[in-house]
Write a protein that binds this DNA or RNA. Structure first.
Lengths: 209, 209
DNA sequence: GCCGATATTGCGCAAGTGTCCAATAGCGCG
DNA sequence: CGCGCTATTGGACACTTGCGCAATATCGGC
């Protein structure tokens, strides 16, 4: 295998781990699979990462971190606070077999037994809530929303969409994307004291790859 | 090992699998661990179950099914609809390292790759939503609540508490049981158009073992 | 008490696991 | 050009995995 700089190789490992995790799940991502995906030997992975937990955590951080950044950009471009929240909701709803959200499910389950992964998923969940809280505060400031507890509101909305997305991804049949969008919208309207229907999304497929 | 009737042995296997899953997680429950837990040979497990997926699904069904039944009883005894919903919320909030809810996390994550487990978790999730919907309809009928969409309301409340409980269990530090109770109560009050504070729980530890 | 049904054993199989490490190969600096 | 640093190899190690199967033990019904 072509020799790489430490930094580039580390990235390559994370990319390969991600590709494997996407196919087999975070929990079932193994050294040998990652090595095979890169076309290198398995020893190389342990030259860069102490344990598999670290590899998996890094892979998860790559997806979830990128997703967070992209969503931040998306919300920045959305305009008024109501549009920001609408964009948030529709970008959160899983599309088909959403492998990125499946990785969240894997991470939450594995958090109990993988310290590095728990640290990453905890930190990123917090960042998502913070992003939402910021959006809510702006809406409160400019009079679009009313909320006496923006932090609590952020966690309530985030937890609701997590819980709904979980149903969509884990049991496709029971709750579908349309249900999720409609339900998340109506609950959020109530939470932020918006008139009913103001968050309705007209079925457009969101940018979440 | 003492010879048992088919029915009793099947139960014993499920019990043993449950004990293992509680310690190591659903995903990491192995034939040999279950056999060791029972003090029998590993071949015996495959005499009763086709695959490990079936064993794991049966074990999960035992916990989650029992929990559902107990909650059904609890709600039946709660009295008026508002008390029913209050009882529901406080019984749902995880206590400490809630292994039962951790099994739900495991099940949702594994659902993608274990058909039998997916079937069970889907079916039980549906049953929880149905139970909640029934409670809401009764409250609407007797004028305790107002809701134009009891089914949607049930899924919204269930998803919210799932999302919150998930945070409590996966990342103990970020959201705690008290936050969860307070946030679930306020969102549910809005959902069912109850006066603020009417669902507040006064910190009592719930019966969820 | 015997016998057939079946519960139970215990090992074999082929494959896979994370981690470690001596050996090797290749790039960049002098 | 040559040397040293280090990226990379590839296999060893000690396990574990799900599943299958012939052999054996033990029960209930006659």
């Amino acid at each position: 295998m072509a020799r790489m700089s430490a930094e580039r190789r580390r990235d390559a490992i994370v990319d390969a781990a991600l590709a494997v995790a996407r196919r087999k799940g975070l929990a079932a991502t193994t050294v040998r699979d990652v090595a095979a995906e890169m076309g290198s030997s398995s020893g190389l992975i342990h030259h860069y990462f102490e344990t598999m937990d670290d590899v998996v955590a890094a892979a998860f951080e790559r997806v979830a971190g990128d997703d967070l950044e992209q969503t931040e950009v998306l919300l920045d471009q959305a305009g008024d606070p109501t549009s920001v929240v609408r964009a948030f909701l529709s970008s959160y709803a899983p599309v088909g077999e959403d492998w990125a959200f499946q990785l969240w499910l894997d991470a939450w389950a594995e958090a109990a037994r993988r310290p590095a992964l728990r640290e990453v998923s905890g930190r990123l969940n917090l960042a998502w809530a913070a992003m939402l809280e910021r959006a809510i505060r702006e809406g409160v400031k400019d009079g679009s929303f009313r909320s006496e507890d923006p932090a609590g509101a952020a966690w309530r909305i985030l937890s609701l969409v997590d819980g709904l997305a979980l149903q969509v991804v884990a049991h496709q049949t029971i709750v579908d994307r349309a249900d999720m969008l409609a339900w998340a919208a109506s609950a959020t309207e109530r939470e932020l004291q918006l008139p009913p229907g103001s968050l309705a999304v007209n079925g457009a497929t969101p940018p979440r790859a």
